[in-house]
Simulated assay, not measured.
Amino acid sequence: MANRLLAHEVSDLCLGKPPLSSIPISATIRHALAALKSSDDTHISVWSCDLDHHSTTHDHCHCVGKICMVDIICYLCKEDNISSPSLALKAPVSVLLSPIPGVVKHVDPSYSLLEAIDLIINGAQNLVVPIKNTTSKRKQLRQPTSLAPTTHAGGREFCWLTQEDVIRFLLSSIGLFSPTAAYSIESLGIIDTKILTINYHSPASKALAAISTSLSDQTSVAVIDDDGVLIGEISPFTLAYCDEMVAAAITTLSAGDLMAYIDCGGPPEDITKVVHARLKEKNLYGMLDEFLIYSSGIPYCNSTSSSSDEETTVLSPVTTRSGRYNRSDKFIMRRAEAIVCQPRSSLVAVMIQAIALRVSYVWVIEEDCTVVGIVKFSGMLKVFQEHLESLID
């Protein structure tokens, strides 16, 4: 049974995965924004293609990165862009790409499960894997710029694998990791105490650098009170389902008010009025015009949350969730509450909670709700890597 798990290749994890949503590196941020709003995915892959002068096709294409709504929001929040978002959106999409090498990495379908885990532990967030074509015709990027194909030479299409995909796959064979999976996260030494925090009453703009860092680290920013108690979070996983005009809220609100703003597709009217007034105070009329257009047409949502897990719970400072419409006009709900556990929580319990709520981390708190650290998918994967390598030895 263990040998069968070790024999798996990354192609086995790609079964049923859809082809990547893609834009060319020549696209502008506005084109990327349109692509994100029309996609069912929260991330869009960015491709660079070198034209073979002896052919009419692009034979040398490579995925050079990925972008999401959070990249655009953080970009619009910059001092040079907040006053004129329309102008900022005309910039090339390349300015949003991560400067960290290896975040997106091409791999052969025959890569082993262990090789994939090793790449992720060493910084790869998305593994780009070729798959068989799902269409008979060559796909083109739906962008108003110079179009580039989503396929490489030979007509191949691509999907990508994430940390969540690998963790979900390992969870399906969790019995092979007994008794390790039942050990507490504290005993396994995977609680990371280097966390990003902001005080509840601090300006949300002070969290901007932390938001960018948490996006790169696939974590979140903890919102705490003066005693270090976890009140909630500002999560890239939530922001990815919001509109770009959250940039106006980050610029004008406190961290606590920002949580309420992004906690639903339509923020409370009183907070919307605060954003409007403060944009006027700051003479940010370019952003104000965009915000007025945005705020006039947002749907409002209301929903409650619950958790049945015994060891891992949900800290719920509010009762709504965030979301946005996809191209099918279906409202996508997203938890905005902080997902928490305690040091004695078992590895498998934390895995299940993270997978169920589609996040790659869980906050670790003490009984008095003070935050002590965070458990990430990358830390979990190190545990499984060591276990699988021991089977080889």
Rank of each mutant, 00 (worst) to 15 (best):
Val375Asp: 00
Val128Ser: 03
Thr134Ile: 14
Ser322Pro: 01
Ser172Val: 00
Lys37Ile: 08
Arg168Cys: 02
Ser94Leu: 09
Ser308Thr: 13
Pro179Thr: 09
Lys194Met: 06
His31Arg: 03
Thr57Phe: 14
Gly379Asn: 11
Pro99Ser: 06
Glu79Asn: 14
Ser295Ile: 12
Ala336Met: 06
Glu9Gln: 15
Tyr111Val: 04
Val46Glu: 04
His276Val: 07
Glu164Cys: 02
Leu357Asn: 10
Asp329Cys: 09
Ser202Asn: 12
Val372Asn: 01
Cys61Trp: 03
Leu288Glu: 14
Lys194Ala: 08
Phe158Asn: 06
Pro267Met: 11
Thr42Asn: 03
Trp363Leu: 00
Leu96Tyr: 03
Arg142Gly: 13
Pro149Asp: 04
Phe177Ile: 02
Arg327His: 11
Arg327Ser: 12
Val340Arg: 02
Gly65Arg: 07
Gly232Phe: 08
Pro343Lys: 09
His53Ser: 11
Ile374Tyr: 01
Cys74Ser: 13
Lys273Trp: 06
Glu389Cys: 15
Thr320Cys: 09
Gly228Gln: 04
His152Asp: 14
Ile190Thr: 11
Tyr75His: 13
Glu366Val: 01
Leu347Trp: 11
Pro343Leu: 05
Cys264Phe: 00
Met333Leu: 12
Leu36Ser: 04
Ala336Arg: 09
Val70Phe: 11
Ser38Met: 13
Ser378Gly: 01
Val362Met: 01
Met333Gln: 10
Gln342Asn: 08
Asn302Ala: 14
Ser316Tyr: 09
Ser205Leu: 15
Thr135Asp: 13
Ala182Arg: 14
Leu170Pro: 07
Leu76Pro: 08
Ser11Leu: 10
Thr197Val: 07
Ile224Arg: 00
Ser220Val: 00
Val223Ile: 10
Phe291Ser: 06
Gln163Asp: 08
Leu215Tyr: 03
Lys273Cys: 05
Ser235Lys: 00
Leu215Pro: 02
Asp270Gln: 15
Cys159Phe: 03
Thr145Asn: 11
Ile250His: 13
Thr272Gly: 07
Asn199Phe: 06
Lys273Thr: 11
